[in-house]
Structure formats: C-alpha cells, structure tokens
C-alpha cells in the first residue's frame, strides 16, 4: 500500500476514534474491561517491536555478545529506567552502539 493511503487511512481511523464518543455521547459506553485493556496497548505494541529489533539479526535469533544492538538496547533500558528521559535514552543508546561497532 502506498504511504499516502496508509497515512490517510490511519488518520481517518485516528480522527474517528477521537470523534466517536464526543459524537455518540450518551448512546454508547466503554466497558470496564475495554478500559482496562487499553492501558496495556502501548507496552504490548512497543515491546512487540522492540524485542525483534534487538534480538533478531539477519532473520534469526541472536543472543550473543556479538549482537551490538542487543547490548546497546540493554544499556538504553537501564538508562530509561534510571533517567526516565527520552532524549538521554536515545543519546546513550546510540553512543553505546557506536562505541561497540568501532571496537
């Protein structure tokens, strides 16, 4: 699919969800279970992207010290945990990857 079609469809869906209950006020309620489930969407989707990015190299699982992205990712996870800063996490993670690729 063309990137413009993706953006258009994604944008329309996003707008639709923002508009949905403002428009349907009083006619539709969000159940407690759905409400609860929505909290888990960001960590689930993002982890489903992060794990393969760090652990899969050339289409196979690579858990070794030679996997620089895995090691740099672990450094970034620690940085994120202690600093809670997006910018610092990216900078430290990138720096770790550079260093390891150079060494």
């Amino acid at each position: 699919m063309n990137i413009w079609l993706i953006m258009l469809a994604g944008g329309l869906i996003t707008f639709g969800m923002r508009f949905s209950l403002i428009y349907l006020f009083g006619k539709f309620e969000i159940s407690e279970t759905l409400r609860r489930a929505l909290h888990y969407v960001p960590p689930a989707v993002l982890s489903a992207i992060i794990f393969p990015e760090l652990l899969i190299r050339n289409s196979s699982l690579d858990i070794s010290l030679g996997n620089t992205r895995l090691l740099a990712g672990l450094v970034a996870i620690l940085t994120a945990w202690f600093s809670r800063s997006t910018l610092l996490t990216i900078l430290v993670g990138m720096a770790a990857l550079f260093l390891m690729q150079w060494l």
């Binding site: 888990y40 990015e53 990712g73 994120a80 990216i90 993670g93």
Partner: peptide, 24 residues
C-alpha cells in the same frame, strides 16, 4: 536504531506494576 530506542524510552517508565511487566 534510534526508533527502537525511542520505544524503549516510552515503555520502560510505565513498567511499574507486575501486569504491565507481564504484558510487555
């Protein structure tokens, strides 16, 4: 590589309770 790093920065701070960690 900065993209997965951005995602790490978004996920890690919300991993406070067990169900969150298990979901991730």
């Amino acid at each position: 590589f900065a993209l997965p790093l951005t995602f790490i920065a978004m996920v890690v701070p919300v991993l406070k309770k067990m169900p969150m960690v298990a979901a991730a």
